[in-house]
């Protein structure tokens, strides 16, 4: 059985259930690199160019980890666009070539180009090529993809019920193993489903904080320095873009004078605008990565428009100290608590 390694970085957080199901359907064994740790980060920092953003460096670290584990392939797609007329980031478009130029001892990459703007046919052709690597027929590939798409629905509904994506992935995987998780139920209404918000010591959350940022930063424990967990420990209920109604987010984003052409940027802006109007949200935190191109503009646009709800831009990189983050989070929570008491 051939093994496919999936680096636990970048779009892993958004698409793992699809990828995992797809490759399993092709008869491959899927190996995921471990949860980001210091060694992975340091390895990535050493390998990538200094100027790369932290998420890209961390991704390199995960790829190197998989190299050490000796997988047959590494899945590192060239992600151009995952929705019509939208891009992700130029770096996503170059990642397979960057890895090939800089990571020694790299196993063959499965570096299919994913560009939905070019239409379904193109996508299918690329997937059949992957299928051929595992000796699969077109039908098998189609089936594997369909199964993956089904699993994505389940994954999204788990996230919608109030779980950050890293937890949602775990729950999804558990559900896979002993079907413990309730089957996909249609999410209702706008806003945040209540339920499963775990906060400190059973106390009901008194504050609700919206957290914006790219999934691979917010849900990576090292990059985000456990932002979500920390907020919860401070007694906050956390709302992330994936917990919101996608259509609502889309509608909010479309109020911008010019269509936002970055998928993640659009999500951040739509979610930010929604949070600004939602009375139950006490504050909004935008987690940006130092040197991130899209964030340098999207953060500005959001900050300008989230003007009534308290807003904090947290910029992190590999040199950010934990103590500083904790202090800023505490100060922010104090501030919004005071503000709420006054209201």
């Amino acid at each position: 059985m051939k093994t496919v390694g999936i680096p636990r970085g970048l779009f892993y957080y958004y698409y793992y259930p699809l990828w995992k199901t797809f490759f399993a359907g092709l008869g491959a064994r899927v190996v995921v690199s471990p949860v980001t740790n210091r060694r992975i980060v340091d390895d990535g920092i050493l390998t990538a160019v200094d100027e790369a953003c932290l998420p890209v460096k961390v991704y390199y670290g995960h790829v190197k980890e998989l190299c050490r584990q000796g997988v047959d392939f590494i899945f590192a797609p060239r992600l151009v666009s995952v929705e019509q007329r939208c891009y992700i980031c130029p770096k996503f478009m170059g990642i397979p070539d960057m890895l090939r130029a800089q990571v020694p001892g790299l196993p063959p990459l499965i570096d299919i180009k994913i560009d939905v703007t070019r239409g379904e046919r193109d996508l299918k052709r690329n997937m059949y090529q992957v299928g051929a690597l595992f000796g699969c027929t077109r039908k098998a590939v189609d089936d594997a993809y369909r199964a993956g798409a089904e699993e994505m629905k389940r994954f999204h509904s788990i996230a919608r019920s109030g779980h950050p994506l890293n937890d949602a992935i775990e729950l999804w995987e558990k559900g896979n193993r002993h079907t413990g998780y309730p089957a996909c139920s249609p999410a209702t209404g706008t806003g945040v489903a209540g339920g499963s918000q775990e906060t400190a010591a059973g106390c009901s959350a008194s504050l609700t904080v919206g957290v914006l940022g790219h999934g691979y930063s917010v849900y990576d424990p090292v990059i985000s320095m456990d932002l979500v967990k920390r907020l919860r420990e401070m007694g906050c209920k956390v709302v992330t873009p994936e917990m919101l109604d996608p259509q609502e987010v889309e509608n909010q984003a479309s109020t911008l004078p010019k269509r936002m052409f970055w998928s993640l940027g659009k999500k951040m802006i739509g979610s930010g605008l929604w949070m600004e109007q939602e009375a139950s949200i006490d504050g909004v935190i935008y987690l940006a990565c130092f040197g991130c191109g899209p964030d340098s503009l999207v953060g500005e646009i959001v900050e300008r428009r989230v003007s009534h709800t308290p807003f904090m831009l947290l910029t992190v990189d590999e040199h950010t100290g934990e103590a500083g983050i904790v202090t800023r989070l505490e100060a922010f929570c104090d501030m919004i608590t005071r503000r709420r008491r006054l209201a």
Partner: peptide, 16 residues
């Protein structure tokens, strides 16, 4: 320019 995304991609490859 510092943080220029396409150039960072290119820079990563120019070593090779």
């Amino acid at each position: 320019p510092l943080t220029c995304m396409p150039e960072i991609v290119a820079q990563s490859i120019l070593g090779k």
